[in-house]
């Protein structure tokens, strides 16, 4: 299995709310749903905790470290402040805002 998103790629956390559909276990914080960030690192592959929590067979999923600007999420903080969060690949999609090419 290879990572779909390379470091530096702009991604969007899916605006999905499985907790509204029934019992579930989710590691994606609510405050990041629908938010855009940048992949900082590929952390590896881990059994999907959403399955592990219910003792189901848990396929391995790629885990990313994704960096989000603090300001758009909470309207707090100073320029450059950020939130660095572990997000599984199946929660990520390409961002609407294109990845900026390195200068």
């Amino acid at each position: 299995m290879s990572a779909a998103f390379a470091p530096g790629t702009r991604v969007r956390v899916k605006d999905d709310w499985p907790e509204r559909r029934g019992p579930c276990h989710i590691r994606t914080p609510h405050y990041l749903r629908g938010r855009e960030g940048v992949v900082q690192a590929v952390l590896g592959e881990f059994p999907n905790p959403e399955d592990l929590a219910f003792a189901r067979p848990a396929p391995r999923r790629t885990l990313y470290h994704v960096l989000f600007d603090q300001k758009p999420v909470w309207d707090e903080g100073e320029a450059g402040d950020g939130l660095l969060v572990e997000i599984f690949e199946h929660w990520l999609e390409p961002a609407a805002t294109p990845t900026q090419e390195a200068a």
């Binding site: 950020g82 660095l84 969060v85």
Partner: peptide
């Protein structure tokens, strides 16, 4: 100094 909050949500 910039502040970076690391929310430890998964396997690390």
């Amino acid at each position: 100094m910039q502040v970076r909050v690391v929310d430890s949500t998964a396997d690390y």
